[in-house]
Structure formats: C-alpha cells, structure tokens
Design a protein around this nucleic acid. Structure first.
Lengths: 284, 284
DNA sequence: GCACTAACTTGATCCAGCTCATTTTAGTGC
DNA sequence: GCACTAAAATGAGCTGGATCAAGTTAGTGC
C-alpha cells in the first residue's frame, strides 16, 4: 500500500512513512487511513447545516449567544426573537448587493459570510469575513440608507434578519445592546484603520503574513496539518484582503510553504508556524 | 503701484490688473489691497482662539452643538457639562500618544486635531482630521484600553475631556447619545473601508483627487482663490492620507495646478475645479 | 480509477511610484 | 526691504509588484 504511486516528487513514500509512524504512536487511526489511501480531499469540515436546521429552535438558542443579546434575560430574549426571521442560504449565494436599500440588520447564526466591495471596474475588495454571532448591514438609520458592500455566503449559512427600525427600538429599550453594538463597531473601526496602515506602509509579504495570523486566530482549528483555517479561502480571497493580485499572493504562499510556515491546498490553508509568521509580519 | 516687481512669471501685472477690476466691481477693498501690496501670506484665517477663550461659558454653548448632545434638554446638558474639563492646546501639541492608556473621551470644541498612527519605523499614517464637534479617543470600555493612534493639534485648539466611565454612564442614561455615537462610528467605519478600497484599487492621482474633494467638502470655505481648505495642510500630510510619498504628492499637485484644478501654497490648498477633480477620482 | 476543471503555480516583462539628491521658493520675522 | 528656513518642486535611477501568458495539479464527480 505504501508503495502506491505518489502524485508528485515530494509527499512521496518517505514522508508518508514517517507520518504513519507518528500517527501510530498517537493511535490516530483515521489519519493513518487517510495517509495510506493517498486520497487527498479538502480538510475543511463540511458545514453541519441543512436548510431545515435553520429553524426557530436553533434561532432562540443561537440568539442568546450573540454578543449583544447576552445581557438580556430569558423573557426579553424571547420577545426580541419574535422580531427576527431566519433564512437559509447555500454556498456562494448573495444576501444583498452593494447599492441595495438598507432596511435590515442581519446576524450570522451558522456558516460564514464575506463582505465585498466592488469598484466600477469590478475589482473586489474583501472587507470582512464573518462568523456565527457577527452582525452585518448598517445598524444606523442615518446617512447610510444603502449597503455599501455586497454580502455573500462563503459556506452554507443560516442568517437572521431584523428590520432596522425594530432593531433601533431594541437598542433604545436595552442600552446594553446599544453599548455592545457600539463596542463591536469601534473594534471594527480600529481593525479597519490598522489595515489602512498596513496597506500604506507594509510590503505584500508582511501584509499576507499578518492576515494569515489574524485568520488563524479567528477561524483556526487544531488539526494534524497545523492550525487549519476553517473556511474556504482561495488565493483570490487572500489577495482581495491584502490588496494585491492573486499571482503575487500565490508566490508569497509558495515561499511560506517552502519555509515550512504553512501547508495549503485548494481553498484551504493551515498554519504550521504561527510565531514565525507573526515575526515576519512585524519585523523591521 | 501695479508696476511693482512680481515674484515670478505668472501672477504678474496682467492678472493682477484684471483681479483688481474684478474686486473693484465687487467693492472688496481688502482683497484689492492684498493684490496691490503683492504681499503673499497664508490665506488661512488664523484661529480666533486664545487660551482664555476656552472657558466654561464657551463650553456649555459648544457642547450643545456637539451632535450627540443635541437631543438633550437644557438641564440635562448642564448636568453633563459638569463632567467635562476643558483644555487649551497650541498648534502642534500632542494630546495623547499611541499606546497611552485610554481613560478619557475627548471632544473638539475649537480648532483642528489630526489622528496619526505610527509604525515601528516611524512612518506615519494620517487616520483622520477632526473638526469642532468631533469626538475622539475610544468610546468603548472593551478590548481597547490603550489609544492606537496619536492625537495632535493641527491648529490651536480647545478640547473637552470626560472620563470614559462617566461617558458610558451618560450613554446608558440617554440612549439618544449612545445612538448618535453609534451612527458616527458607523459612518467612520464606512469611510475607513472606502479608503481601504481606494488604497487597494486606485492609482495615486485618483486617491489624491478624492482626498482633496473630501477635504474641500469638510473644510472648504469659499474664497477668492476657490474653495479654500481651511486647515494647515502640507504635502506630507496629504501623502500620509493617500498612502504615498511627499514627493509623489508634490508631483501630482503640480500637475493639478498646471491643469488649473487647484491653487496652493505652503500648507494650504484651494480647489478651483471641484467637478473635474471629482471626475478624475472616479473615472475608469 | 479516470477524466475533467477550476484553482493554483510559475515565468517574463514592464512601469508606477519610491528613494535619494539637489534646487527653488513661499512665508515669516527682523 | 532683506535674510532666513522649512516646504515644495524637480531630476534620475531603481525596484516591488502588476500584468500577461502558459503550464500544473488538487479535488471532485462519474
């Protein structure tokens, strides 16, 4: 079995042999089978989410986990829950488009959503990658009455929506909610400003190193391969975050792989040496 | 008098003659004197602000003009006012430094303040330019307990400070205040994201054109020279906003001047053709 | 296990904008 | 009016990263 053809020069019999020894030691049978089968498939866990899972039961449970509702009592939460409607989206669906009139505030219950801003020429900039618990859309009633970005699911997702006017009422009633929303928005502003700084002052390599560390921190899951970023993530996605081209991103990632800092395949990345990446992103 | 030596080729006798005719027609004597004297000095109006002007009287008056207190009644405002302390700063003073522990929220009463973020190597990025009525410092009690930018006066300024804990109390009591702070923060986030987009996708010329239009919109004052940006603004400042070098900014500005889109001197810029600049910043 | 395709890699060329160096000038203070 | 200085303009050369153009390959679906 170990002698079966290997797809390319590296990752061949030697590497696999030692990997098996390692996993025998750790008694991780499924990993051994994986290696021996020589069958590669995406290491990203498929989302444990079907359309029918995106129901009221789940909603109430999840809503309590949303940061800005954590302060609310059971009964208040039940009240607020009534204002929400749930929708299920499959992978790659558009939730709303840049320029659409902005009447709803949304919350990710399950899955991932990316916010992308497009220029007139169609170039995309990836503004944010959202997780369960994150809200999106404008929480303001003010100057912004249209979305200035497009929201698209990166995985199948369950999304709750509340009418903006209803949400503002909730914020008025429960100041703790308004406060948490403000805190989150301030954090996002600070993040966003840091990114401006990076775009203005750092070369591409450091920007990408920093993005990888940040993503690992937010979406990382320990895995045989390292800290696996649990999210479909193409070179193009990374490029759109780093403000560079897909080709340059590919070159940088190849170098990182060369230096044994990461492992990656199609649409997935695992960090093998986070401290070193962090060092690269911050060195003078 | 009109025959006196002109400092350079252009702006000589002909231009001055027609300018005088124009101003005679409009009976603007001071402008005529200005032109005839051939004495150039900064067109920026010196701030009408002395240390002793930054007093309690002014405070109460100004505080009511701050967006997030506009909803408050006279009495409530008087109450809130007690929590504030006023300080006067002269031009170029540092109000707080990046990394200082963040215990105060501040409001500009008069003058201008710039927020700058510095890299380890000392490169600066100009994050925001503030006007009377703008707040700065973190309004959150959360994850951010240090400032992540440096605040420095761009003109002499009068600044009010309130302890963060006091301000959060005010926000808890008056939800309208929390709401407006949230709206402003959301607007800033959107601005900031637009800037990320520009840094990622636009060439320097367009970025600078856009910044000039934005500044004109925020700080512009009609003037003989055009829409004068009422703010000391060096090429370096502009460069730090556009994420480019002072030299490149200078070249771009020279070109704009060549094309009769702007007039500028040391630390000041006046827009002569805003529509065209806007077109440049947005053209494909 | 094989075929297929979108994602990724790699190479070669080019140029916008950076850097370093020098000159010019606007605005100020005497 | 003159001298002084920091800001701005300008020149010349270089390079990081974009762009265009082929290959290669991981992962999927049959």
């Amino acid at each position: 079995m170990l002698a079966c053809s290997s797809p390319s020069g590296d990752g061949g019999i030697d590497n696999r042999f030692f990997a098996v020894v390692e996993y025998v030691r750790r008694q991780e049978v499924s990993d051994i089978l994986y290696i021996m089968s020589d069958k590669r498939e995406t290491p990203l866990s498929s989302p444990p989410l079907e359309g029918h899972h995106c129901t009221v039961d789940l909603r109430l449970e999840k809503l309590g986990l949303v940061p800005f509702f954590q302060q609310l009592a059971e009964e208040q939460l039940r009240e607020v829950n009534k204002k929400f409607t749930a929708s299920h989206y499959s992978k790659g669906e558009t939730i709303y488009r840049q320029g659409d009139s902005s009447t709803m505030l949304r919350v990710v219950v399950a899955g991932n959503v990316k916010l992308v801003s497009h220029t007139l020429e169609g170039e995309g900039v990836l503004l944010d990658m959202l997780q369960p618990g994150d809200f999106f859309g404008n929480p303001t009633a003010g100057s912004q009455d249209v979305y200035n970005e497009t929201a698209e699911t990166q995985t199948p997702a369950c999304i709750l929506s509340i009418r903006l006017s209803d949400f503002r009422e909730v914020m008025n009633r429960y100041s703790s909610v308004a406060m948490v929303v403000l805190d989150i928005t301030t954090d996002r502003l600070n993040e966003s400003r840091q990114r401006i700084q990076h775009l203005s002052t750092l070369p591409v390599t450091k920007r990408i190193a920093h993005i990888l560390v940040t993503l690992a921190h937010k979406f990382g899951e320990e895995d045989r391969r390292g800290l696996l970023i649990q999210l479909p993530l193409s070179r193009k996605d990374l490029a759109d975050m780093a403000g560079t081209s897909a080709e340059t991103t590919s070159r940088v990632m190849s170098q990182f792989q060369e230096d044994d800092l990461i492992t990656s395949g199609r649409q997935w990345v695992a960090i093998k040496d986070k401290p070193e990446l962090l060092r690269i992103s911050a060195e003078s």
